[in-house]
């Protein structure tokens, strides 16, 4: 009796949760294929790919998606995971006092400093470095903001890699950098993977930083070129194109997630454990 009640409660809860998560996305399932879109969910009378064709014909938006977002995303991914891996290794294997406190302070910094108030000093800094209107500038700022959380996630992975191999390699006379490259780094691959994907997803979706640091239309990533489908005079979306472009823009991260999930299982491995 109790298990039946329990089952009913759980089923109702799960159905409610599934509904909550899927309904805001329903519109995207039909709208892109509908030549006459409104904001209501309607099953297209005559489904077509015309909206996609029109979006594909917009060279600015497509360059944003296929080139600029990829450059920024991959740049942030490689940079963040590499720097975080080095730092996490240094923290894990060294004897730096108060390291957990240090990381919390950094996270605190990053959550506040990557906010809107820091955009002006960051703009000035990037300008002084001569990196305004370059992908490098955007990537560096992204890495700076993502790094504390990345180190936080990464250090648990490094902690879980056994030290015996490193000690053996040390006895054999390998240099610390060699040990890191050939012994530790390969065994912390899952962590690098998780951090890398996390950084990629963040950089892929980021709007404010590229919006403020980039100028030339041909350098803008998809998060900003998204607004080319808004009317410039006043900011009203041209919803047919927005619908199709949103799908194209989102698909890569969803596919990436499905791939990772299928290949590795997407979860916090040892991460965030205290």
């Amino acid at each position: 009796m109790r298990t039946l009640l329990q089952r009913i409660v759980i089923t109702v809860f799960v159905v409610a949760v599934a509904t909550f998560f899927i309904t805001p996305l329903l519109w995207f399932i039909f709208a892109p294929f509908n030549p006459q879109v409104s904001l209501a969910v309607t099953i297209p009378q005559s489904p077509s790919l015309a909206n996609f064709a029109e979006v594909l014909g917009n060279s600015l938006a497509m360059r944003g998606l296929l080139q600029n977002s990829v450059i920024i995303g991959v740049g942030a991914m490689v940079g963040t995971s590499l720097v975080a891996a080095l730092a996490a290794y240094g923290l894990s294997r060294g004897s730096i006092p108060g390291r957990s406190l240090l990381i919390y302070v950094l996270i605190l910094f990053s959550s506040v400093v990557t906010g809107t108030a820091s955009m002006v000093p960051i703009f000035k800094l990037i300008f002084d470095l001569g990196l305004i209107n370059t992908h490098t500038g955007v990537i560096l700022v992204m890495i700076g903001g993502l790094l504390p959380s990345a180190i936080f996630i990464m250090q648990d992975f490094v902690d879980s890699v056994p030290r015996s191999y490193e000690e053996a390699a040390m006895v054999a006379g390998a240099s610390p950098l060699q040990i890191f490259r050939d012994v530790t780094f390969p065994s912390m691959r899952p962590g690098v993977m998780v951090v890398g994907i996390w950084a990629l997803v963040n950089a892929w979706g980021a709007f404010l930083i590229p919006f403020i640091l980039l100028r030339s239309p041909e350098l803008l990533p998809a998060s900003v070129t998204f607004y080319t489908f808004y009317d410039p005079e006043s900011g009203m979306p041209q919803i047919r194109m927005v619908a199709a472009y949103a799908v194209l823009y989102t698909l890569p991260v969803i596919l990436l997630y499905l791939l990772i999930n299928w290949r590795y299982g997407f979860r916090f491995f040892g991460g965030i454990k205290q």
Partner: peptide, 11 residues
């Protein structure tokens, strides 16, 4: 907003 940032930075 872009002009304020650009012109202030000499760009």
């Amino acid at each position: 907003q872009q002009y304020v940032l650009d012109l202030g930075a000499g760009a």
